[in-house]
Amino acid sequence: MAAEKTHPILCATDVSVGYFSKKKSVIVAENITFNLKKGELIGVVGANGVGKSTLLRSLVGMQPILKGTIEINGKDLTKVSSLVLATQLSVVLTEPPASKNLTVRELVTLGRQPYTNWMGALSETDIEKITYALEVTDTQKLAHKKCFELSDGQLQRATIARALAQDTPFIVLDEPTTHLDLYHRAYVLKLLKRLTKDLNKTILFSTHEVDLAIQLSDQLIVMTPSEVYFDEPCKLIAAEKFDSLFPKDTIDFDKNTGRFSIKQ
């Protein structure tokens, strides 16, 4: 049981992420090593352009990595078929659903695709998972609304519900708190925290809300232009890793409160 608990969902070993441009590989971030365990909430923080999105896209297999290995549930990410991967890993992207004409229920139902037959017919289990996903994200009252009728906060909850319906042990969210007010930012992150505790899911999210991420995450990936750190938030504070996150002449980090402030 103990072994089961410490068994990592995702292992990244000495990974370099980046992209190919005119036959040259451009490294965005390198020397990335971390293990993500079951039931953990992991935040990814860093300044704009430091490679958060690139890292996330690489982790979910949308973009090839330049160096190192990524293993999901002990298997090399590149060797897992897309259909098997769909049962291991679900995503919430920054882009909204392409069709705004979908109802919330249809959106969430699409999350069951890896499990349904060629016509997408729903079994009892599928309907249970959909209902549960709607309940947990507090969207059951919106189920018959169309996406274009929703506020940003409601739409974000609906897309999280879709990822939940996909019923994967690992969920990756790219900036789930952008465009949201303070209440919804806190609501979404608390929801993610609750999901890791109640359902024992591993959830990785990138965010610009460093303060909130420090308060709620079990582990943090801090990306600076020179290095990528991975540890528990309090240890990272103690090691003064946040100081180099933003240029010091503009933003100050207060160790005691764990908050950033603008330098006067």
Binding site: M62, A86, P97
Partner: peptide, 9 residues
């Protein structure tokens, strides 16, 4: 949902 979401499913 878009190409990326479809791929992820």
């Amino acid at each position: 949902l878009g190409e990326n979401y479809a791929k992820s499913m």
